[in-house]
Write a protein that binds this DNA or RNA. Sequence first.
DNA 1: AACACCTCCAACCGCCTTCGT
DNA 2: AACGAAGGCGGTTGGAGGTGT
Length: 323
Amino acid sequence: MGRAPCCDKANVKRGPWSPEEDAKLKSYIEDHGTGGNWIALPQKIGLKRCGKSCRLRWLNYLRPNIKHGGFSEEEDNIICSLYVNIGSRWSIIAAQLPGRTDNDIKNYWNTKLKKKLLGKQRKEQHAHARRVGGLKQEIKRESEDLMLPVGVISRTPCWPHEQNSWPIPVANACLQYYDLNNKTSSIVHIPDNTVTATMNSQYSSFDISLTQDQLYPSTGNMITTDTCHTSNVFQGFGNFSSDFACVNSQQMDGSELVFYGMESMEIANGSTNTNSTESTSWGDIISSMVYPPLVSHYEACQQRIMPQDVTFEESSYFAMRTQ
DNA sequence: AACACCTCCAACCGCCTTCGT
DNA sequence: AACGAAGGCGGTTGGAGGTGT
C-alpha cells in the first residue's frame, strides 16, 4: 500500500491548464504569495486543482523570469558537465542555470542533449579507434611487469577480475571534491604516474588506488577524513586508453568526491609527455568530461549492474554514475 | 488525403525528506 | 521520539503537433 493521495482525485481537474486557471493562480500568488501551503491554495482561489499541480504549474511555467527553450552552447556544457559529475539531480543542475526549471532541463536532456552528446561521442570514438589502432595491446603486454605503487592501502574486493587485470600509470589525475550543500568544489592535482589504474580486460573496468596523502592532502583542502570515502579504491568502467576516465564517489555527508584521469602513454613509448596527455588545462579536462568513454563490453556490465532495458549507448552514462 | 510513426514537453505519479505538533 | 502532513524531487506518461510514406 502506498500513501494516501494528497487530494480527492475524483473532484479535481487534471490535464492542461486553461488561460483562465493560469491567470487566477498567477494573480493570487502575485498578490498574496503561496501562504506556505500549496494544498490549501486551490480552495482559496476557487480552482478545482490539486495543490501539487498548482505548485508545479507555478514553478515550471507561471513564476517570473522563466526561460523556455533555446538553450545556449554554454548552458549545454554546464548541463553535461554537471550530469557527468552528479547524475540526474535536476534541481541542483537547475540551480546553476538562472531562469531554467528542473523539468525543462530534464526534458531537454532526455530529448535532445543526450542524443547530441552520443552523436559526438561516437564520432570521437571512431576517430580515436583509427588513431590508436593496436596500441592498447602493446600497452597491455609491456605493462604486465609493472608493480602497483608503494602506499596502496587497500583494494575493494568487489569484482573477481584478478585473472585478467594489469596496472597502468595514470596521467593528469586529479580529485575534485563537491560540497553540494554549499555548492562549492575544490580540485587537487595528483603528480603524473604516482597513481595507477588496475585495468580489467574482461569487463573493461578499472580500480584506482589512492594513498592517504593523495586522498587527504595537507594543503588546507576541503577534503577531510570524516567526509571522505571509507575506502581508498575507486571503481569504474570504460576504456581508459587516451580517453578521459571519471569515477564518482558519494560521501557520507552527501557531498561527492570525483576522480579524473587519463591513461599515461609513457610505458608504451618511453617518453613522459605524449599524445594522450597533451591536454593539461582544467578547461580541457572539463570539456573532456562531457565525452565519457564508451563501455565496450556491454554484456559483462549488464550482467553485473545494468538495468535490463538499458541500451548500449545509454550504458556509458550509466557506467559513469556507478559507484 | 490518410495513416503511421516520431518528437517534444507539460503534467502526473509516487517515493523520500522535511517540518510541525 | 513519533507521527502525519506537506513539500520536493526524479521518473514516467500521454497527447499535441510534426514528419514521412
